[in-house]
Amino acid sequence: MRVLAAMSGGVDSAVAAARAVEAGHDVTGVHLALSAKPGTLRTGSRGCCTIEDSHDARRAADVLGIPFYVWDFAERFTEDVVEDFVAEYAAGRTPNPCLRCNERIKFEALLDKAIALGFDAVCTGHYARLDVVDGSVELRRSADEGKDQSYVLASLTREQLAHAMFPLGGSTKVEVRAEAARRGLSVAAKPDSHDICFIPDGDTQGFLTKRLGQRAGVLVDDETGAVLGQHVGVHGFTVGQRKGLGIDAPAPDGRPRYVLSLEPVSGTVRVGAAEKLAVREIVAVRPVSRVDWSGPVECVAQVRAHGGTAPAIAELVGEELVVRLREPLSGVAPGQAVAVYREDPEGGDLVLASATIERTGV
């Protein structure tokens, strides 16, 4: 097959490309330039997609002996990922920019261009597995549970998965780094990127305030309705947040307070006890499903990239995915994604559906 290997400049994508070459595919490497000012997006292990990263990707392609190109996707990335991120926070929701990048950049914009140019598949360094079930390509968890990225890929359609390659799905990160060293790839020991790539200093609140400005509001005790403090914008908070609330007085019982909900129109941030964060029902919209929803399905629900899982029953009701949790989860916020899996005793749980959380209940 003709394969386009998306090479970020990290060890995972370099080894994924190497495995595609070794498998006998006709591989071309491509690095996506996602910022108009790429020099500003990496500080040590923070950020990604910098000039440094593009050079690392090119060196890896040279070692593998494959053609290499840099494609400018900065405008599309800004519109579909960065601006979406800002708009979601302004609306009081908590988005996942990595999920959005996979969905709209790597497996929409990039894949569309790859197919138009005659490529059969896009290869990435994601830790997830693909499997053929009843003639359709399905998504499973990776062998390395600690690195599993099926959650941020769960919104991909069957058609997109049919043109995807994840060569690292059966490996651990330790194995991948060791293989990179054996292959003579200079990125073998390169640190993984952390946090949000377009906020390299990790100051999400500062980033959002710079773009949204100050929108004064109040912090309110959910139990009594008492005003506990002031703030400069609901975009500075997320559901489940405990630290940095700016509340001087402790709760009457001495226990910490947490953000329970955000009301962007009124600027109200409601806070209260930890037990009020417990959620037993999730209603999510814009589902991407791979299940025949003739009725409720036993599953495991996941609401964060790492952790946040619970046994559940899921059901497609009209255009909404309704997930009833058998065990409560905390800190579940509108805007997050919920992915539901079918447990597999042999591992590699199968992704059944993904949707964007609209509201929660108890």
Rank of each mutant, 00 (worst) to 15 (best):
L260T: 05
L277E: 05
G267Q: 03
P256M: 05
H306G: 07
R290A: 15
R342H: 11
C98Y: 10
G146K: 13
V21Q: 01
L262K: 02
D80Y: 12
P345M: 00
R304K: 15
P191C: 02
L110Q: 08
V81Q: 12
E275L: 08
D248Y: 05
R270E: 11
G47Y: 03
D131W: 07
S330K: 15
A181Y: 00
K173H: 12
E223S: 14
I196R: 06
V27G: 09
V297L: 11
Q160K: 11
R158V: 07
P264E: 03
C49L: 08
T268E: 15
T268Q: 13
A314Q: 12
K276A: 15
G347D: 01
A5Q: 06
V322N: 11
P95E: 04
D248A: 14
P345E: 01
T360G: 12
L156A: 08
L350G: 02
A90Y: 06
L168K: 07
I105E: 02
A87W: 00
G225V: 09
A121Q: 09
S289P: 11
G206Y: 10
V362F: 12
S136M: 10
I199P: 02
S150I: 01
V351Q: 13
L262G: 03
Q241Y: 05
S13H: 03
V338Q: 12
A189M: 06
T172R: 07
D344M: 00
L156P: 10
A6P: 01
C123Q: 02
R211A: 10
G10W: 00
D120M: 04
V338M: 13
Y89N: 13
R215G: 12
L350H: 08
S266E: 07
R104S: 13
L130H: 04
F73A: 15
L316C: 06
L64Q: 09
G295M: 02
W293A: 13
L99K: 07
A310V: 03
G244N: 09
C101N: 10
I51E: 15
A57N: 06
D248R: 15
A18N: 01
A60F: 04
T172Q: 06
A189H: 10
A91Q: 11
K113N: 13
R359P: 11
V122T: 04
P38G: 12
P328C: 10
V232T: 14
V351S: 14
S186Q: 14
V21M: 05
Q336T: 03
Q149L: 01
